[in-house]
């Protein structure tokens, strides 16, 4: 399974890579929307995991572009605090699942699985 991780904080990317790789997944990372977009265009991913708050172009911008390139790819978002506003907006952008930071490895893996299964339906 090939997963694209987008976030501006390297420690978050590193944490995610560590957890997902331990599960035997292949990961590619981007710390800006621009690199993320480039990677998306060159590769086929099974899932994109992205943060929401990023300097410059934010997570929703990333999702928008990703959906243009790969409309069928599931999207999982990470956020500091889930509000009904975020939930509502995510639904409009076609987000498959959410996870609140901080999380344990088990929680992240479960969220990724759920996102993929939601998308397959």
């Amino acid at each position: 399974m090939k997963i694209l991780i987008v976030d501006d904080d390297p420690i978050v990317i590193q944490s995610c890579c560590r957890i997902l790789e331990a599960e035997g997944m292949e990961t590619r990372t981007a710390n800006t929307v621009k690199t993320g977009e480039k990677l998306l265009a060159e590769n086929i991913f099974d899932l994109m995991l992205t943060g929401i708050k990023m300097p410059g172009r934010d997570g929703f911008e990333m999702i928008q572009r990703a959906k243009k390139i790969r409309p069928d790819m599931p999207v999982l978002i990470m956020t500091g605090y889930l509000t009904s506003g975020t939930v509502e907006k995510s639904r409009r952008f076609g987000v498959s699942n959410y996870i609140a930071k901080p999380f344990t490895p088990e929680e992240l893996v479960a969220a990724v699985r759920k996102a993929r299964s939601v998308c397959e339906k």
Binding site: S15, A22, P102, F103, T104
Partner: peptide, 21 residues
């Protein structure tokens, strides 16, 4: 403060649990 703490906390949780495995 909470937001700033969230990211490092994610790392702490991740790596602690990874080591515990």
């Amino acid at each position: 403060v909470a937001h700033e703490i969230n990211n490092p906390l994610t790392a702490v949780l991740t790596f602690t649990h990874m080591i515990l495995r």
